[in-house]
């Protein structure tokens, strides 16, 4: 039992690091240019030149996947950033003014945003502004806001009843300062774990959005769009559909393993149970 905990974290981190590295390398170098079409080499099977073969336009699958990782990770990270930057302060504010009108307004606002799945937000934005990768970031980011607000409010509320917060109040500290000095550091663990979860959900959501054409637009490669293009050729070239899917599964799996490992490592409740 004890040995499994760091293992989970290590495996997850290793898998995810591989994708992150591939994405970073793709800025400097890819095996083949992903915008150049080479119909002569289309649907080539894996070879020394094309380690994972080529697609129906003769583009190198490995290069496409590397650049696709960039899109997925960038969208998911920025969406987590939006969710945290807006959601955590809202959650802390609501907790500091628990039971007040502000708390009620923030929480009802949360419920309202929760009623809009990120796909629906993306549909609304795309209908009015047209499709782009930015839409996906905003749509997933908005969806993340109430998630972080709720998690940080919940964790903060249980802290606000603790005596050490009362001691800080007796020391004349205001709610804002207490939230910053005492509450935020103590909920950081929870936020890190939730951040990994939302990161992996973000990769899944980005794939779904670009699959239906609401995310990254051509010629930017993305895993979801690769799947959409591969769909018509699923009978003749299933490889084109299988590879990007596997990339998504592995990246998400890595992040989830990492998140679970982090939770086991950081959650004092579990740690106590283990001792």
């Amino acid at each position: 039992m004890r040995a499994r905990l760091p293992l989970q974290l290590l495996i997850g981190a290793a898998i995810f690091a591989a994708f992150a590295l591939a994405a970073l390398v793709s800025f400097l170098w890819v095996p083949h240019d992903v915008t150049a079409l080479n119909i002569a080499a289309k649907l080539a099977p894996p070879s020394r030149e094309y380690p994972l073969g080529t697609d129906h336009f003769g583009r190198d699958m490995l290069s496409m996947l590397m650049v696709g990782a960039r899109t997925s990770i960038a969208v998911a990270i920025l969406a987590v950033g939006i969710g945290m930057l807006a959601g955590v302060p809202l959650g802390l504010w609501a907790a500091a003014r628990r039971g007040s009108l502000i708390d009620e307004i923030i929480m009802r606002g949360n419920d309202l945003v929760f009623a809009f799945p990120s796909l629906v937000i993306a549909i609304l934005i795309t209908a009015v502004f047209g499709p782009s990768a930015t839409n996906a970031i905003i749509a997933i980011g908005i969806f993340n806001i109430p998630v972080f607000a709720r998690v940080s409010r919940g964790a903060a509320l249980s802290l606000w009843t603790r005596d050490f917060i009362m001691a800080a109040r007796v020391a004349g500290k205001r709610a804002f300062r207490i939230s910053l000095e005492h509450i935020l550091p103590n909920i950081a663990n929870v936020l890190i774990v939730q951040g990994t979860i939302q990161f992996s959900l973000g990769i899944l959501a980005e794939a779904g959005l670009s699959y239906v054409g609401l995310g990254a637009q051509p010629p930017t490669p993305s895993w979801g769009r690769m799947l959409a293009e591969a769909q018509t050729m699923i009978y003749t070239a299933p490889r084109l559909a299988i590879l990007p899917g596997l990339a998504i599964v592995l990246a998400v799996l890595g992040l989830n393993l990492m998140g679970d490992g982090l939770r086991d490592l950081l959650d004092p409740r579990l740690r106590r149970a283990r001792q």
Binding site: D163, F164, M166, A167, P185, N186
Partner: peptide, 10 residues
């Protein structure tokens, strides 16, 4: 306060 465990920021 009463609870020596809850009285301090860990």
């Amino acid at each position: 306060f009463q609870d020596p465990y809850a009285s301090f920021d860990p």
